[in-house]
Design a protein around this nucleic acid. Structure first.
Length: 146
DNA sequence: GTTCTCACA
DNA sequence: TGTGAGAA
């Protein structure tokens, strides 16, 4: 059944979603999008737009194109809706865990960086750099004590 | 403006 | 996971 006969060109989607035409063709080559053709020119319908939207949002939370393809394609399968949601839920949980771990790592790196900064600032405060303090700092640096 | 391919990081 | 360049 015809859902809608409204179509968008690649240029229109480029503006609307702030992506490059190259990226849209790339997604198509990867099987994430399958716009109709009018001759050789791509025509995107509302379904394509929804898929693109979900794709871009999924990318933002760090899902790979392959993972996204799995979720999007599940929609068309038997028992698709439930299956799709179950896949999505699983991906969300995994990704949440990954990001939380990265957050912990980032905080550690950040603390290290702040410590570096403070120590270097202190070294630079004196008109002459204290040789002993410098050696200690470099020693801690190279021995990973910071 | 849009298409495709090849190369490249 | 895309981009750049070149040709049509």
């Amino acid at each position: 059944m015809p859902q809608s006969d409204t179509y968008w060109t690649i240029g229109e989607l480029v503006k609307e979603f702030d992506v490059t035409a190259r990226a849209l063709r790339f997604y198509e080559a990867k099987g994430l999008l399958a716009p109709k053709r009018e001759g050789t020119v791509r025509r995107y319908n509302s379904r394509d737009r929804v898929r693109l939207n979900l794709l871009l949002r999924g990318k933002r939370i760090g899902l790979s194109l392959n993972e996204l393809k799995g979720i999007l394609d599940a929609y068309d399968l038997e028992g698709g809706r439930r299956f799709q949601l179950e896949i999505a839920l699983s991906k969300f949980r995994t990704q949440t865990e990954i990001l939380e771990n990265q957050k912990v790592d980032l905080e550690i790196v950040l603390e290290t960086l702040k410590t570096f900064t403070k120590r270097v600032e202190e070294l630079l405060t004196a008109s002459d750099i204290d040789d002993e303090a410098y050696r200690i700092f470099m020693g801690e640096l190279t021995h990973g004590k910071l």
